[in-house]
Design a protein around this nucleic acid. Structure first.
Length: 899
RNA sequence: GGGCGGUUAGCUCAGCGGUAGAGCGUCUCGUUUACACCGAGAGGGCCGGCGGUUCGAAUCCGUCACCGCCCACCA
């Protein structure tokens, strides 16, 4: 069965994954008695393909779920994808455009059909890629936010919230994306800094020729819809104008000059134009003063004059309706230029200042958002937020790291009504129907709506369903329970809700986490998950956010092809500390690929030396110090790894595994084992070493399986630790009782330090490895001499020693010397070392020790320290001083001998 | 404008009251029963600045300086 000289992820990984999947190894078991452990996948967009952020979050989730599964929990990692309304609709619209078609041409039903068709053909990309990563999702349970069950959950929720008055229709200003021609929520708006201008406009005061009120604006094109100028009631400059009227230039409309505290005397000129239909603040001012709210931009953000036509008037030198009419149908940008030019011509442009402002853009469409007055469906998030806030305050749900709770609170405590309707075709169509007179009937299906209508009208009526669909996040918000069968009361729902951990990025705390909390608490009466682990954001090697447009995105699939999924996964674990972001480049993955190779080669060595799994192995039965030491170290590694995972410290988990495999198992255990395994070694020792080596390798494979499932499973199978493919379901390692552990550790620790010391001296003195030297110990106890006897062979090999013995007689001339605990270590190397260099080396060591001793002595001479510091700290310093002093004596003697 | 992070070895980051750590890189040496995707060794840091608390501060508090992020209606 000899292992190949290299681990070949390309062929091994897919084979193992198929094995696990077909064996049902990822499945939860609702019938089991085990405690459930549930992670709901944040459903990736069905249009998506795996990017580095996915690789990170899903690696972490898979590591957690595999670990808990090994701990014997009934683990459910619920898979699925999101229909992603806008994103998916855009993808299919682009396809249509390539065929020269438009969705309006083919009609709603045909378009939706087309999207389903697209989903059937291309929607599996992301799930295939998740498999490639090794994600152990319970695939037969895969759900889609638009499938029948989840659609039923959406309708159920909508109807309930509507009946409770928590969903309602309202006509107000909404963020409108003119490119996609749909309303979007506050969260879908991102501010971009744009270098623009601040235009100062002169609005003539009525019947006072030559008198103007000057207003500053960043959006001169909206002036067509101005219905007032506001000044602060205490404004010293413009206060006198309150109550008078101004003439709106170009339009000729007479508008009042009103007093409103919104107008800040410090900003602009202190007087502000009010355009209620195109600015959120102005809308509020308009409501307070009962102003008209004409829209002057349509759904494509082109100028429309229908609502101001009747107020336009010719005012020579100020207003010219003919000019205004020429703007109709122009884009807001064209209209801006035209209006500014015209105002300048009329000498109504006071001045222009350069100005940097934050311009709201739609995050999908990428064009500036236009506040527009429309009727939309809203969800009363304020009411739903209260229990969600309380749940986090009382710790029913906790965030890791905890600081993210502040982010959650700050948004939830100031939450705005959530606009849930979208003017799209792809999504959950709003279950509302309208009668001929506009009466609204909300029901789960048309029959329900008709029944309501019959009751309302006393006879049947033709009803028309609302054209709009729901915000994608409405259905995602139900994900933690809709995927479990709700509104049906399934046993899965009873068993797996609430989930244990939600793993996600901070960027969707508002979009998704908050909505799940609100809807989960309201619909299910309990939080959707106990813990929210906010994972790091992936950045490139220079710390820049990865994005396609910047061209700095690293493709995880490419990395997996080159280095294997395990290397990528281990890298992610190793870099995922408690901080905020992870800088990841190909070179890091290459580095950690070395670890996978190291493990593979260590296993090869074990195999070559006949280390075979033995189910009957009893760790308590070992007698060799090496075995006992290794088992004690294994215990420590198990504790560290388990603690790290408990605390979501994936970096510490990875580093505990890394250190144990590389520094403990390979660097020392295998090296110490070599002399025990050669021909001629004591057969009993060889047998025990093989057994303990095989046992610990097995523990290593278990310990690392959650992070690097493929290479560990492959080795597990090849060695025959269990049935092929069984590691994934094998118990997580527990610490074992090791007799004589403390003594064995003390002994091995000393041998390791002796070897390291000799190596260090030889290297510093440039002694060629081809020139072994004896090691003489001066002042060593009988106990130490005993150790030396036991470890003679290992010390010979690893420290390049020809022999090790107690010093008899004088120290040979020209020896290198060092101090280890109470003994002087002497390497007779006459002729091989430069005595001056050796003297310098010893002097340097001595200086260091003297400085250390002095510092410690000073500390101990400080009365405050001795009286106030804890007893053990004082004792520790006393020991430190004593040890240093004894070492100084020995080093000084060694230096004197060199003379 | 409000809030949150960060500033530790050349690079990437741990450590968060008891005399500075890791990985990678650098330099030197090395092919010895796995591994050169390797082994051995070495060098390298007034822990951003300034104050304070403490017997003791990289670690706690204050303050300043940069860097990054989130939120916000500033004409």
């Amino acid at each position: 069965m000899a292992l190949d000289s290299r681990f070949a992820p390309g062929e091994i990984e897919p084979r193992l994954y198929e094995g696990w999947e077909s064996a049902g190894s990822f499945a939860c078991d609702p019938d089991s008695n085990a405690t459930p452990f549930t992670i709901m996948i944040p459903p990736p967009n069905v249009t998506g393909s795996l990017h580095m952020g996915h690789a990170l979050t899903f690696t972490i989730q898979d590591t957690l779920i595999r670990w808990r599964r090994m701990q014997g929990r009934d683990a459910l990692w619920q898979p699925g994808t999101d229909h992603a309304g806008i994103a998916t609709q855009m993808v299919v619209e682009r396809l249509l455009a390539a065929e020269g078609k438009d969705r309006r041409e083919i009609g709603r039903d045909a378009f939706v059909e087309r999207v389903w068709q697209w989903k059937a053909e291309s929607g599996g990309t992301i799930t295939r890629q998740l498999r490639r990563l090794g994600a152990s999702l319970d695939w037969p349970r895969e759900r889609f936010t638009m499938d029948d069950g989840l659609s039923a959950a959406v309708k159920e929720t909508f109807v309930k919230l509507y009946n409770e008055g928590l969903i309602y229709r309202d006509r107000r200003l909404v963020n409108w994306d003119p490119k996609l021609q749909t309303a979007i929520s506050d969260l879908e708006v991102e501010n971009r800094e744009i270098k623009g201008s601040l235009w100062y406009l002169r609005y003539p005061i009525e019947r006072q020729p030559g008198v103007f009120v000057i207003v500053a604006t960043t959006r001169p094109e909206t002036m067509l819809g101005d219905t007032a100028v506001a000044v602060h009631p205490d404004n010293p400059v413009y206060g006198a104008l309150i109550g008078k009227r101004a003439i709106l230039p170009l339009v000729g409309r007479s508008i009042p000059i009103i007093a409103d505290t919104y107008a800040d005397p410090e900003k602009g000129t202190g007087a502000v134009k009010i355009t209620p239909a195109h600015d959120f603040n102005d809308f509020e001012v308009g409501r307070r003063h009962d102003l008209p709210m004409p829209s002057v931009l349509d759904r494509q953000a082109r100028v429309t004059l229908a609502e101001i036509e009747d107020v336009m008037a010719v005012v020579p030198g100020v207003a010219d309706p003919a000019f205004v009419r020429s703007l109709a149908g122009q884009t807001r940008f064209a209209a801006r230029s035209a209006i500014v030019a015209e105002l300048e011509r009329l000498e109504l442009l006071e001045r222009i200042e350069p100005h940097i402002n934050q311009v709201p853009h739609g995050d999908r469409g990428g064009v500036p958002v236009e506040p527009l007055l429309t009727t939309q469906w809203y969800c009363d998030a304020g009411v739903l937020a209260k229990p969600a806030i309380e749940a986090v305050e009382t710790g029913r749900t906790t965030f890791v790291p905890k600081q993210w709770e502040n982010t959650f609170f700050s948004w939830m405590r100031d939450i705005q009504p959530w606009c849930i309707s979208r003017q799209l075709w792809w999504g959950h169509r709003i279950p509302a129907w309208y009668g001929p007179d506009g009466t609204v009937f909300v029901a789960k299906d048309p029959d329900g709506a008709e029944a309501q209508a019959r009751e309302h009208y006393g006879h049947s009526e033709v009803l028309v369903q609302d054209e709009d669909v729901l915000d994608t996040w409405f259905s995602s918000g139900l994900w933690p329970f809709s995927t479990l069968g709700w509104p049906e009361q399934t046993r899965e729902l009873a068993r797996y809700y609430p989930g244990d951990v939600l793993v996600t990025g901070f960027d969707i705390i508002f979009f998704w986490v908050a909505r799940m909390m609100m809807l989960g608490l309201h619909m299910m009466g309990d939080v959707p998950f106990r813990t929210v682990y906010i994972n790091a954001l992936v950045r490139d090697e220079r710390g820049q956010k990865m994005s396609k447009s910047k061209g700095n995105a690293i493709d995880p699939l490419e990395l997996m092809d080159t280095y294997g999924a395990d290397a990528l996964r281990f890298t992610i674990c190793a870099l995922t500390g408690p901080g905020r972001d992870v800088k990841l480049g190909a070179s890091r993955v290459q580095d950690y690929r070395g670890f996978v190779t190291k493990l593979w080669n260590a296993a090869r060595f074990c195999e070559m030396n006949g280390m075979k799994p033995d189910a009957g192995f009893d760790p308590a039965s070992v007698t060799l110090p090496l075995s006992r030491w290794l088992l004690a170290e294994t215990n420590a590694a198990i504790r560290e790894a388990t603690d790290a995972l408990e605390g979501y410290r994936f970096d510490e988990y990875a580093s505990a595994g890394y250190r144990f495999v590389w520094n403990t198992f390979c660097d020392w255990f295998l090296e110490f084992a070599k002399p025990l395994l050669v021909q001629g070694a004591a057969p009993g020792d060889a047998a025990e070493t093989r057994r303990v080596g095989a046992y610990v390798l097995g523990q290593i494979l278990r310990l690392l399986h959650p992070a690097i499932p493929f290479v560990t499973e492959e080795l597990w199978d090849r060695f025959g630790y269990g049935e092929p493919g069984s590691l994934i379901r094998t118990a997580w390692p527990e610490q074992v009782a090791v007799p004589g552990a403390a003594q064995a550790r003390a002994e091995l620790d000393w041998v390791v330090r002796l070897i390291s010391l000799v190596r260090s001296v030889r290297a510093e003195m440039n002694v060629p490895p081809s020139k072994p030297s004896p090691i003489l110990l001066q002042g060593a106890s009988l106990d130490l001499i005993g150790r030396v006897e036991r470890w003679m062979e290992a010390i010979r090999r690893l420290a390049r020693a020809s022999d090790v013995s107690a010093l008899v007689g004088e120290v040979p001339k020209g020896s290198a010397q060092a101090v280890l605990d109470g003994a002087t270590v002497i390497l007779p190397l006459q002729g091989l070392i430069d005595l001056a260099a050796e003297a310098a080396r010893l002097a340097k060591e001595l200086d260091k020790l003297v400085a250390d001793a002095k510092k410690t002595a000073q500390k101990l001479a400080n009365v405050d320290f001795v009286s106030k510091a804890p007893e053990e700290v004082v004792a520790e310093n006393r020991e430190r001083l004593a040890a240093a002093q004894s070492e100084i004596v020995r080093l000084q003697a060694a230096l004197d001998r060199l003379g």
